[in-house]
Write a protein that binds this DNA or RNA. Structure first.
Lengths: 187, 187
DNA sequence: ATATTTGTAGAGTGATCAGTCAATCAAATT
DNA sequence: AATTTGATTGACTGATCACTCTACAAATAT
């Protein structure tokens, strides 16, 4: 495993459990099994590290959830694919989604990083847009649909992390998806 | 204005813009116009301060949104009251809702505080519960409804803070509430 | 082969910060 | 009037931390 990835791994775990300024860079280096200086060789500053980590995880989330979506025909099924893939990723990486939620609107994430993230999430925006054009998705500002959908999805993930048995209850999961999709779809 | 409140006010502003460990207690004291020692007279530690602040704001939010709700008869209107009152509070205190969102799942908020918050939110839980018994609200785990509803509400608030002109567009706000209530209500 | 760049290490440092402390002041209680 | 209790102050400190710097090793280019 690359040293950079070891640093990312250590930082993810420590930042989520102890906070950003709550974890010394020395501890990150120690946990990652690298020297203090190595950390600063790869990242100019501590802020640089958390910004890269955040971008990295957002990228991973989007890639994991959209990989293979082009094979799916119907729009509803595409949304279901996205929805279930994201949940699947979150359930296997609870700490990652936890980190994202925790630092999404934190002052450590620069506007520059936010802009990069905005580019990444365009896949989602485009899907919503095409849904609106097809009159399958409600004609509501895309931004609003996006925020509401992601927030609701995060809520569902939070619930599933606390009640993991529900994740294997397919009847429940079906109902849960409809709860999600009913907001978006035209009546 | 009480010194404690001045400290709360300063801490709210600084914590949201610079992060918890990112703001020195000395700066909080200076901004609040009190001496360094005074801060520690009222709060045992810096963590104690942020926990109290968090609890304080959660309380304020719930009180503001539920105050006067007993006068309303229909369940749907009660939800609409709660929904619009919360949004109204958030729009006049964007920093407060921003702080809540930012520290909701941060490691600085102790489980003890979370438990206190759980007590506060019982008003909401009871309302949902009675709605389920009346068969006006979907028969879904109360926890799940609660999480989804609050997350969605937070999403809406985020959108409105960015697009404040929509807040005064009553047609939009009507549509927005229905977007919220349609998830909850039985078909 | 030699030069140059890149990776890795860890001791060292100047600055910063949470919390203490001793002193004074104000108000309440006896 | 005396005494206790609580409020307020700000200088001080021991510890901690982000980042630097120098040195060496490995890889890559010339």
């Amino acid at each position: 495993m690359e040293k950079v990835d070891k640093i990312f791994e250590a930082a993810l775990s420590l930042f989520t459990t102890k906070g950003f300024h709550g974890t010394p860079t020395s501890e990150i280096a120690k946990t990652a099994g690298v020297a203090n200086g190595t950390l600063f060789h790869y990242f100019k500053t501590k802020e640089d590290l958390i910004n890269n980590l955040y971008l990295n995880l957002k990228n991973e989330m989007v890639e994991e959830s959209t990989n293979g979506i082009e094979k799916i025909e119907s729009l509803k099924l595409k949304f279901e694919y996205l929805w279930s893939k994201t949940i699947q990723w979150a359930m296997t990486n609870p700490q990652k989604i936890f980190f994202i939620q925790q630092y999404m609107y934190s002052p450590y994430i620069t506007t520059n990083t936010q802009e990069e993230v905005d580019k990444i999430k365009e896949v989602y925006i485009n899907l919503i847009q095409s849904g609106i054009e097809n009159e399958e998705i409600k004609e509501i500002p895309v931004d609003l649909i996006y925020i509401i959908a992601t927030q609701q999805l995060f809520g569902m993930i939070q619930y599933l992390v606390i009640n993991p048995e529900k994740y294997h209850d397919s009847e429940f999961m079906n109902l849960a998806f409809n709860l999600f999709y009913d907001i978006l779809k035209t009546n």
